Computed example of a mutant assay.
Amino acid sequence: MKIIPCGSVATKPAPEAYFTGRVLQTPIVEKEEPARLRALLVQFEPGARTAWHTHPLGQTLLIVSGAGRVQSWGEPVQEVRTGDVISFAPGEKHWHGAGPRTAMSHIAMQEALDGVTADWLEKVSEEQYSG
């Protein structure tokens, strides 16, 4: 058993290349090979969001606070809120983030394939975000 004390893992700003707006990330799980699980607490300020991206082995989000938006390529923007669980299939192009006037936090869970958890693409435009 390993206990990771609260506050012992640093929260960091998310990379601007992959996000729009202020986003903070706190690692939860970073398992060593052969395990592949990775999990992060991601906190989005209102209007903040990821860029379009995919995950080689898919991704699951658990919304832990607030309300936000998610979208898969070619589908309409959908509203999500605390308690919702969102599952993206391997290779499914998508984005996720806070609502325009509400913050949102989620736990993002994905597996690494050859060390890669995400393939980052173009940023989400204001028009795409607004739906």
Results as ranks from 00 to 15, higher is better:
Ser105Phe: 06
His96Ala: 05
Ser105Gly: 15
Val42Lys: 10
Lys93Glu: 13
Gly47Arg: 03
Trp95Ala: 03
Arg69Leu: 14
His96Pro: 00
Glu75Met: 12
Val116Trp: 05
Leu40His: 13
Pro76Ser: 09
Arg81Ala: 14
Gly47Val: 11
Val80Pro: 01
Val42Ile: 15
Gly83Leu: 11
Thr102Phe: 10
Glu33Cys: 00
Glu92Ile: 06
Pro34Asp: 02
Ala48Thr: 11
Phe44Asn: 09
Ala39Lys: 03
His96Leu: 02
Glu79Ala: 12
Glu75Arg: 15
Ala51Glu: 04
Ala112Ile: 01
Val70Trp: 07
Ala108Ser: 15
Phe88Lys: 01
Leu40Pro: 00
Thr50Phe: 03
Pro34Tyr: 06
His53Met: 04
Leu41Arg: 15
Leu61Ser: 09
Gln78Thr: 05
Ala35Asn: 03
Val116Gln: 13
Leu121His: 12
Val80Leu: 04
Ile63Asn: 09
Phe88Asp: 10
Trp73Tyr: 09
Ala89Arg: 15
Gly91Trp: 07
Ala89Thr: 09
Leu121Gly: 03
Ser87Arg: 12
Glu75Ala: 15
Met109Phe: 03
His94Ala: 06
Leu62Ser: 06
Glu33Asp: 04
Thr50Asn: 06
Glu92Met: 13
Ile107Phe: 04
Phe88His: 13
Thr102Glu: 15
Gly66Trp: 11
Leu62Ala: 12
Thr117Gly: 03
Gly115Glu: 09
Trp95Tyr: 03
Arg49Gln: 08
Arg101Ser: 15
Gly83Cys: 01
